[in-house]
Nucleic acid binder design. Structure first.
Lengths: 184, 184
DNA sequence: CTCGAAAGATGATGTGCATCATCTTTGCTT
DNA sequence: AAGCAAAGATGATGCACATCATCTTTCGAG
């Protein structure tokens, strides 16, 4: 069957959105093309009408995941409420919901190790997404070296959630409590 | 063929050491039992004489990887030279060699996302390994809340290396330079 | 209004994987 | 010294995956 041009674009969006979720939940190697197409409501057949290969979808999905996850932060900064938006971002980042639901969370703790083994396109999308987050966080800071402090803060957040997800409950609770208490 | 009891223990050590390397380089799903056995100089056949399943090997390999990577730090602390050992650890952690060679590096940025999807045994080994690193780092600090500051420092290090490995070269250079300049 | 082309379904191909069964050899117990 | 049991090799088994070929249907250009 054939579909209209608008419907094709919508299909592509559905594939990317489905991939963005599944990649964060199951990792790159744990997410098959067929699974992601099924999540998007299609069979695996039409996949290569949209993407050259799995890597191309991964790159697009990483960009989408960053955009989705940091949308509230970006919106707050654009609205001139950077400090409040950044505080909300940090609280959400270290919240139990974020730790328990990587499929809707930050791509850094969920997918970075896989992206490190992926192609240049995915790495470029990842670097751009991380940089955008840091730019927004830096907008909420005052004083010297705002950008540097924003990078360290973001790295600490990502590391804390990463360790918490991979550890036993007691260790996870300790890292998270400590990260919540600390600001850079 | 059969092998002596000592030779069996040595075989097991070789399997664990090979797995510890390959898991950090290729991830859990990217490392097949057959590959790891071949790295250890054997065929896949004898694997289940040593481990109940792949997960059991992953757990053992994570413990071994933490022990190997943090050995210099632990030795320095045990020798009463905690401050110097911790400084060396941080410099090594953020060094180009560590970023470029995950197979010999810290298990946190290399394997945490995979371990988060693994069983309880692997999570317990991971939490214990991370806690041991933090204990050693805390021994090098003075003043209040040493343990908390050590956790935040370690999370920041892991996050920075994680982001650097997954990003384009320009972004990676920026994160690393920033992390090197910053102390918590 | 018609026809080529393309979206997506169905199905095939070849590969790789975890796990198990079996066989051979040989250490270790009696 | 003898035979049992176990380490590791060889070889299935059954499944999952990325990619490609083909077929059907319908869009959109002329």
């Amino acid at each position: 069957m054939r579909v209209s041009r608008a419907a094709k674009a919508e299909s592509r969006d559905r594939i990317v959105a489905a991939a963005a979720r599944r990649l964060r939940a199951a990792g790159v190697e744990g997410s098959s093309v067929g699974d992601m197409m099924a999540d998007a409501g299609m069979t695996h057949g039409g996949f290569y009408r949209h993407f050259a290969n799995k890597d191309a979808l991964v790159a697009a999905a990483i960009a989408a995941a960053f955009a989705e996850f940091s949308e509230p932060l970006a919106a707050g900064v654009a609205a001139g409420e950077a400090p409040a938006a950044a505080a909300d971002f940090v609280a959400r980042y270290l919240g139990d919901g974020h730790v328990a639901h990587p499929e809707l969370g930050c791509p850094v703790p969920a997918t970075a190790a896989d992206i490190a083994r992926s192609g240049d396109a995915a790495r470029a999308a990842f670097g751009a997404g991380a940089t955008a987050v840091v730019d927004a966080l830096a907008a909420a800071l005052t004083g010297p070296r705002r950008r540097e402090r924003a990078w360290r803060q973001f790295a600490m957040l990502a590391g804390a959630v990463l360790i918490a997800r991979a550890s036993d409950p007691a260790t996870a609770a300790e890292v998270l409590a400590t990260a919540r208490r600390g600001s850079l």
